[in-house]
Design a protein around this nucleic acid. Structure first.
Lengths: 192, 192, 192, 192
DNA sequence: TATGAATGAGCGTTCATTCAT
DNA sequence: TATGAATGAACGCTCATTCAT
């Protein structure tokens, strides 16, 4: 019965394997055959779930990005005071980068590489809107500097990717102190 | 002598072609044959200058990273006051990312990807020492927050890579105002 | 009974789809999955009606060849005078090539290609006997040249396949004049 | 020295292997790997000489068709009387089909199959012009029936392909008598 | 030093066929 | 009987690397 449907489990296993292998080897050094093997399916099976390799990686990207933003805004109260609201989101994102480190790593690689379709990139950005809204509110209230959203993201959020990467490479450990300091730096960079 | 000169030109042409092609296609989607063609040499010739593809890209990385740090510290006066000294370096780096945008792009891709040997990565970091020294001094003088150097780099320097990428994708234009704002954000994130 | 009927419909749909797709793409460029899709059945269902792909195409060939000869001799009076009898058959065959052009095309492809089992090829030839009988009679009466039956077929019948193909490719239109001329040529080539 | 050039021998070996294998298995049942093996080269080497499989088979077709027409008109005197001239060409073609039976077979398969580009098909037809000229002359002189050239070809020339195929399949042997009869039939079908 | 030819290994993908229901 | 899911084997083709000169 469950076998009569294309199994969501198989799709998920493929996405998971893709993340793992692309993280360690990069897009082009990750053959479909290895992805299949790691997901315990035949290479041909991949093509029941995805159109081709590009589609697989695009969909994986969108999956992960969606999970990321969902996690970031989960439990978020848009009516909280700006700093408090920002801290909440920031902490959720930091949490994600720490706990879903593999996923964060995958996003970092996708975002700095020509391996993702522009369309999928746009698709992935969509769900960040609440953060942009918060910044708009913060700017209006004079709590946040009237910078371009790109600058705000570059300084308030993106450094976490760098830190996560440094941790993955064994250079640092993102303990409580580091996280606390990082938030301070983030907030100071954008607060008025 | 004429021979030697010619050889250096060829090596440089190969490095240049590598940067160009890797930027646009990624490491593994950049065949040696295309690199050779763009550098106007035979594929076989590459192997007179580099051991293999990995070596070529490693050396290219080190070349560019070295150029980057050289540029960053060119004209730098280590005895200037901390903020002034920092601003000098920061501006040089911002300048590099703007004017040598292709090179900056290449570094961004290398730094977020498993395409570079760990050894080469370490080699590339070496020349940042003056910046670390400056931060040490700044911390000692109580001008800069006593954060880990990784945090300082993550907030003070690394965001420029994000902004450069956004510009390359056509999302923003790094004009004077943006640069000014970016520096403000950078300094505020690390200043005491 | 209703079940059986339905089955015959499915078999026919598969045969029809095979003809269509093989005509346009050739045997090996015609996947079972496409045949299934065009016949509105599952790929697995094909194997309830045919042993494998080779069997499917063999049976299709025999089906079409049988239809062809049936059509050719339908209404044929073996006792008519030789020329009259020949003209009758010739016209029927010409008619078939014009009106069942897809089927004629399929036969042409099968007959010039290693895609059909030798056994099926022999099976397909069987029903041409009345024509051979007519030729025997014609030779005996001194009305038809005492050529090998292969020569008679090559000149009296086979050219129609060439003309049909030329029409299919848009080079000519088999109008009444052309057909009249073609018959003249056919008859002149074999008549004593 | 000879090794510095792409060797014409290798190209020819590939063309030859293609003819052989396609004759016996058909286009799509002839893998590049087998062609390579039969030509004693690596699969990759094929792509130094041909763009892809389609190009290989197209070029092979044009090669063979060119050889065919060259052979057909070799020594031909366009000023000879029409029947004599026709007989000369016809004999050359018959000769070709007998002696270069593999090549004739290949053409037969190409001409009845969607395996050749339309462009290559047109290219292959070009060199038949002298025959068309002869027919024009014959029609003008009232020696040949004023049929469409397609009919003339269908009855005067094309039957040889059928006979060659029958011989290849072991059904007949094209000895002198058969050839003589075939010519008679051919000429009678088109002569006024 | 420099090359164009050549290649084995491996890639993404397809497909005839089978499996589980 | 009928199916959609699943697959191993094979295909066309590419590429990092080597060879012969």
């Amino acid at each position: 019965m469950a076998k009569l449907q294309k199994s969501i489990d198989k799709r998920n296993a493929l996405v998971k394997a893709t993340i793992d292998l692309v993280n360690n080897n990069g897009f082009h050094a990750t053959p479909m055959s290895k992805i299949a093997k790691m997901a315990n399916v035949s290479p041909a099976t991949i093509y029941l779930y995805f159109e081709n390799k590009q589609d697989l990686v695009n969909q994986t990207y969108i999956d992960v990005k969606t999970e990321y933003t969902k996690y970031a805004f989960n439990g978020y109260d848009a009516n909280a005071p700006v700093k408090e609201a920002f801290q909440y989101i920031w902490n959720r994102i930091a949490d994600f980068k720490l706990k879903q480190c593999e996923h964060a790593l995958f996003l970092a690689q996708c975002d700095n590489t020509p391996m993702i379709d522009e369309a999928s990139r746009q698709e992935g950005i969509k769900h960040l809107q609440p953060l942009l809204d918060l910044w708009a509110k913060g700017k209006a209230e004079g709590v946040i500097k009237p910078y371009s959203d790109y600058i705000l993201y570059a300084y308030a959020i993106n450094p976490l990717a760098f830190l996560m990467l440094a941790q993955k490479r064994g250079a640092i450990t993102l303990d409580d102190t580091l996280i606390k300091n990082a938030f301070e730096a983030a907030w100071n960079s954008i607060k008025k």
